[in-house]
Design a protein around this nucleic acid. Sequence first.
DNA 1: GACAATACGTCAGCTTTGTTGACATTCCAA
DNA 2: TTGGAATGTCAACAAAGCTGACGTATTGTC
Lengths: 168, 168
Amino acid sequence: MSDGPQPQTGQSLLFLTDEQLRKGIEAMFFAYRGFTADPDRILEEKSYGRAHHRAIHFIHRNPGTTVNNLLSILGVTKQSLNRVLRTLIEDGLVASTVGKRDKRERHLHLTTEGAVLERALSDAQRDRMRAAYRAAGPAAVAGFRQVLEAMMDDQARHHYEAMKDVTE
Amino acid sequence: MSDGPQPQTGQSLLFLTDEQLRKGIEAMFFAYRGFTADPDRILEEKSYGRAHHRAIHFIHRNPGTTVNNLLSILGVTKQSLNRVLRTLIEDGLVASTVGKRDKRERHLHLTTEGAVLERALSDAQRDRMRAAYRAAGPAAVAGFRQVLEAMMDDQARHHYEAMKDVTE
DNA sequence: GACAATACGTCAGCTTTGTTGACATTCCAA
DNA sequence: TTGGAATGTCAACAAAGCTGACGTATTGTC
């Protein structure tokens, strides 16, 4: 209602029609499938799943993170994360060390072997992302990131921003 | 390695660094969670899942589609789709009619009740998408769509484009 | 020192949604 | 007309999410 066709200055609001939004929705669906396809192939060989990938990715990004912190980043229950984490630790990809200051905490790191898998998964996913970025160009990429950030929940955006400035 | 800092003409290739790509990957992950959050809440009340949402969405977009066609759009096995479809048919949201020309085929439509749920889900998802679009602006939206399209598999892009011109 | 709160791990059981394999029906072409 | 291909259904199983309950070690507080 509030977005009726008010004659707008120059740049019209045509990009906010239901039809345009629907296409955006479908683009997200199809693109996300492409986004996960390449790592999925690698994971399948090792009989891991997407959950393992997510854990590995964020442990890599936040080395030494605690289980609780990882939980809130991933937005799953601890039972669910624990199952994944246990297999990764058993398989020697992730190391869990007792906290120095607080001995209740476990700090998570990738082992050398874990870092190898992380690199393989990351490379596969980045290759596709790079091709898409290159095809679309820098201006499109900026817009892409802007829209995605606006689509996040507040909590997710917080995590996202927190990791942003690791290397910036 | 291949994207070392080669001095580029004007517009640098800084947006293709591993770090930038990694942020794009994380943006996709967090944004997709937001993207599905609102419909998920509605679905939970009716004890349906995301798979039901996808089926309803694409049946709405391609009324009269066959099971096989829906299969190739959704990219799952027919057994998986069948379970979802069966509950939707039992619950009276989807109508399945035997094909006239080919009696092996089943043509799928939303019932009135199905269309009501589709609308509710669609509205919820579009609201978030609209807010993100509005916040980012038309230029960003164009870039967003460009990058997503470039990220799709060929087959997905084909389906995406095929549905594009329904109303254009 | 007693006791509540925190961080983590685990067990049991359930749901959704993906998989493979077997099977019925229908169409088409040799 | 008959055998193979295509379409869709049923059965059983696996991955990965969830809730709830409980145990243990540690921390911090009264």
